[in-house]
Design a protein around this nucleic acid. Sequence first.
DNA 1: AACTTTCAAGAAAACGTTTTCCTGTGAATT
DNA 2: AATTCACAGGAAAACGTTTTCTTGAAAGTT
Lengths: 337, 337
Amino acid sequence: MQIKSSIKDIAKRANVSVSTVSRVLNNSKYVSEDLKRRVLSVVEETGFKPNMVARGLVNKKTSLIGVLIPRISNNFFSKLIEGIEEVLQTYGYNILLSTSYNEIEKELEYLNIFEDRQLDGIIFSVTEFTDQHKNFFGETVVPTVFLGQKVETLKKYPYVTIDNIKAAYEATRYLIKQKHKRIAIMAGPEKDCATGDNRLQGYLEALKEAGLPLYTSWQTRRYHTIDDGYYAASQIMSQSEKPTAIFACSDQQALGAINYLREHGYRVPEDISVMGFDDVDLATVFRPKLTTVKQNPVDMGATAARLLIDQIHGNSLTALENLVPYRLVVRESTKSL
Amino acid sequence: MQIKSSIKDIAKRANVSVSTVSRVLNNSKYVSEDLKRRVLSVVEETGFKPNMVARGLVNKKTSLIGVLIPRISNNFFSKLIEGIEEVLQTYGYNILLSTSYNEIEKELEYLNIFEDRQLDGIIFSVTEFTDQHKNFFGETVVPTVFLGQKVETLKKYPYVTIDNIKAAYEATRYLIKQKHKRIAIMAGPEKDCATGDNRLQGYLEALKEAGLPLYTSWQTRRYHTIDDGYYAASQIMSQSEKPTAIFACSDQQALGAINYLREHGYRVPEDISVMGFDDVDLATVFRPKLTTVKQNPVDMGATAARLLIDQIHGNSLTALENLVPYRLVVRESTKSL
DNA sequence: AACTTTCAAGAAAACGTTTTCCTGTGAATT
DNA sequence: AATTCACAGGAAAACGTTTTCTTGAAAGTT
């Protein structure tokens, strides 16, 4: 028990060959009940456990999936992980978790580590899809699923996301229907291209369509953290012309914004409406309850994992684009003028 | 590029032996500048990357650390991970993430997987330390650090936590100083032994010392989720005699409780004070801002990771118990009677 | 000039498995 | 009775590395 025993030791103790032990362990054919019992009893009494690394070497599979996300302390991403883990686990895969903090060099570093480690697959929540990324995924042959945004540059791997343009468009439309004419947006960072850009685009489309003014000073591009939301709100509200509604592209930012607004004498939603995005756990606990675009990150993660398993199993992929549903949830942080 | 090349191919192309290639790759001595250049250029042009699995097999190290926590979507644990990853990364280790959802069988299952996979170390946020756990850690020899609670049954591995008894004692003391005489507690589940029990113990000590009544109907034991907090509050408030203060052993539960209270016509803190534990991100965003016992999970994670690295490097451990600081942060959810 | 020592580099063993290739049974078919 | 055949099980190759062993040459010592 103490000392690490190998299949050879088991073979010796059971008086059989290594091949036989291996066959017993893998339930292969061509081994008699007699020897099987003998081997099994030795395995039992020594508490022998096969070395997965050695196994991995010959089988050319590690049963490890690399999951790369911007940050884990963001509720959206941790829920994503929950969904991913749930399905991967049932297929006997484990997760190698890495976080990029939105830094592209880190992303590339981790992707290379994933490759070095011979991981069986990658689930990647992209920050910005650069040429370097394209290179990596062009040369490499690891099954991959992109998560959270469209990755059009590569035709070989699927992605799962919501229709961000449409969702943002609808959210903005809702504010417009509520008679808001001066609507600001707190979008994701420019780096985080697709998502940030798409939601901004949806917002702009809605405004344009309604013939409303679009001031760039009412558009911020910051990270999805409470602090950044706070800061973005301070920027927007420092303009001489102030909006009556803010569309925050994440609940985190919405929360930070509301925090700022209240500390500076604005009431939400009486003075200013705030719309969020994501519907994180606290959106309903917070007061006012957050009006927001609900995503289902657990489902998204699970979907991504399933798509990955499909690839690993060699099934031909059904669709590159996998859009999952979202839903506008009206609660208390927005109000008709 | 396309086809996976091995060190052998490189050797052939560079007209040297495998050993030489390996030596070049590992920067070992005894290889001339001439051959070195030749090998390096072949490596360059083929984009060769050594197979970490094969390396792991001979080096008997995987550079992988198993991290086992109850759930990742809890902000406390995800911050823990942030701290862990930060230091592990600088030492070239990656994280294999697993979540137990407080299920003991799952914990044991994952621990066994960790062992099978030859992980170099384990960071384990225990739910309940059972005999089976004891067995596992008795027989196994993997460097380990326990996180979040005292694990006294094993003298060989360190743990990092805060002094939960004292922290809960002080939190309760604070409420008592605020003239509260009827104080309820929402503790962690019974399963989650040390933490839940310890905080309950600190609470009881403070009450006893002050000669205050302790009703078991004012003590709940539930998971640290918003929903469980909501439910626990409903239980406590359904008693005929109602408390004037609730000490929730997690911010999550505190939030759920406040939610319940407000929905049922109680004002916080005017009618009932609510004290939290953890100081998660939203504790300051939420209104009323949460009075809470601040922990620093990022630091805790980093500390645990460092202790693990120490073990792996074979340094003798300095102390079994590693207590990290905590701090009572008074904000708006509590009020003097 | 003879003898160590140091360095360079290839051959081969090792890491712990799985799998292919053999060989030897005994049973089934002719 | 001769021939095939399915099965059991051992020996050995393979997976892709690192490391030990060896040999040979060049340099340093007496």
